[in-house]
């Protein structure tokens, strides 16, 4: 089986088989990352452009490293250093990049739907590296990869996703991916951060963290976007932390050996106590390492001749 698509825009559009193929392909690339010489010639002669309209060190570096380990040429393009400030549209910017023979464009953009727009407008493959509140498919895939690596089976797996679900593309992509693979999802947060009709995506809503954590196999914490304070979503950081912060006592409510995940960067002492972030249950750094393998897998699968 191969991935018969030009772009990776969302998890919602993937079949369970395609998700499994990506995870299995990434498995082979994990081995490459463990070698002394971490490079294979699979994408020699291909050009990957990181087009980032939002600051992101982690995701951009991860994609850059993934492309370089596959021997592709990588160009980083960010708005502060580009013509975007001069009023060029997204599509025009992308077409200019394409005219320079880019094979794959990795897009991070503040607007939901930007990746889809770009994918339909250019011949190059487009990988969504996060578009507004819509999706962040590679993050969800690396989260799944990490769970699978820890020998978790998705069927019936109980996963609590905690935090600002409404404004989180990570949460959306994970809810889509986990429900496609048959996991049981519990979405936890204050009512102001839970979108309406979340149950239709296959997630059960909880407002009480202690209740939601009982018996879960995975605790996935979301970053509290502190810049949203003042928008009346929560009264104070301290109150949010008291009600929805993950402490060592709360981890004990979950299944023994439950994984603690976080897409980073962690606000220590806000959504997660420092001792939890550094504990044995925490797989936060595994997630980062696996991100490179997942992105190598996706770049490889999308790089077939068009």
């Amino acid at each position: 089986m191969s991935l018969k698509r030009k772009d990776l825009v969302s998890i919602a559009s993937l079949t369970p088989d395609e998700i499994t193929l990506i995870l299995e392909t990434a498995d082979s690339f994990k081995e490459v990352s463990g070698r002394e010489i971490k490079k294979v010639p699979a994408l020699r002669g291909k050009t990957v452009v990181n087009l980032f309209f939002e600051p992101s060190t982690r995701t951009r570096t991860s994609f850059e490293l993934a492309a370089k380990r596959l021997s592709a040429d990588v160009i980083n393009f960010s708005p502060s250093s580009s013509s975007v400030v001069k009023g060029e549209t997204l599509l025009d910017t992308a077409r200019n990049i394409e005219a320079m023979q880019a094979d794959i464009i990795v897009l991070r953009h503040p607007d939901a739907g930007a990746a889809e727009t770009l994918a339909t407008g250019v011949k190059s493959s487009v990988i969504n590296a996060g578009d507004g509140w819509h999706e962040h498919p590679t993050q969800a895939l690396l989260d799944l990869f990490t769970m699978r690596e820890k020998n978790l089976n998705f069927k019936g797996l109980r996963v609590a996703i905690v935090g600002d679900i409404a404004h989180s593309r990570v949460a959306r992509s994970n809810i889509f991916a986990l429900s496609k693979l048959g996991a049981e999802i519990r979405a936890v947060g204050p009512p102001t951060m839970i979108p309406v009709h979340l149950d239709r995506l296959g997630a059960r809503v909880y407002y009480d963290l202690n209740e939601a954590l009982r018996g879960v196999d995975v605790i996935m914490m979301l970053r509290l976007q502190l810049e949203r304070q003042g928008r009346a979503l929560f009264p104070s950081i301290r109150e949010y932390s008291r009600l929805y912060g993950l402490t060592a006592e709360r981890v004990r409510l979950a299944e023994a050996g439950a994984l603690v995940m976080h897409p980073g960067p962690v606000n220590r002492g806000v959504e997660m106590a420092p001792e939890v972030a550094d504990s044995f249950s925490s797989v936060i750094l595994d997630q980062v390492a696996n991100g490179v393998a997942i992105r190598m897998g996706i770049l490889y699968l999308l790089s077939g001749a068009n």
Binding site: M1, L3, L21, T25, D27, R44, Y300, G304, A305
Partner: peptide, 12 residues
Amino acid sequence: LAIRKDQPVLRR
């Protein structure tokens, strides 16, 4: 690899 339409399945 550069001329194939579909990428072959990777094994470890």
